[in-house]
Amino acid sequence: MKQIIFMIFLLCSLTCFTQPNCYIYPEGSGERKACELSYKAIEYPQGSRASQELFDKAIAIGPKYAWAYYEKSVPYFKRGFLSKGLQILNKAIALEPREYLCYRAYWYWQYKNYRLCINDLERYYKLPKAYLQQTPGGDKDMKLILGLAYAKQGNINKGIEVIEEFVTNTSEDDINLTDYHTLGLLYTLNEQYAEGISMFKKQLRVNADIPDTYYYMGLAYKGLSNRTEAKIKFDMALIKILDESRFKIANPGFRVYESDIREELKSLKLN
């Protein structure tokens, strides 16, 4: 049920990235024409010549229409052309920072520049009327990306603080499928094992199909010297990760591999 709700939520969040209604712009204005041309552009495959040329026309006729810059930048980011993508997206941010800063932060995160990701998100959350924004794929709120980015920069306490605040202020019905897991893994990395286990137990009520959850839960039990429970969790992590149809976390921050689990099981046998 939770997964169905997630899919519905995902579809809703994706619609947030679709363009606004062209009729909100005055008839005959550059923005109206740019908006209509952008509609035509997205009828072609993303990144195709026809699509990019229509975005260029839209930008030429309505240079203040931010969505055209944003949409034109997307294939560059997705295909490894970071500089070109930034060059275009920065124009959208200059026009509408509240709408597009999170998108740039997301790509800074994807391209492993955690400092720039943090800078953008801190700037975003200080903006008047900043609202909660999800990742483009809708898997988690950008607050979790901020928390993970702090942790990646070595500031786990700050990361925990940000995600704790988000989780505390979000009802269990609105929580995403991996939020408790993310907080639990940061607790575990921070050697707050009891808090980690408590958070993973909450996670298992939301989504019990993530191998990573069992792995980090195993690490937390190991941290508390509870070898029996640690082994049970590592065994479960192995079963889950060997399942081809397993749940894969998007933007995990700290990904778990089969070899990590096997190493832990081996280490338990040795000690």
Partner: peptide, 11 residues
């Protein structure tokens, strides 16, 4: 000039 601007697909 159009041909030079974009490949069939970006990338």
């Amino acid at each position: 000039s159009k041909r030079i601007l974009y490949p069939d697909q970006i990338g």
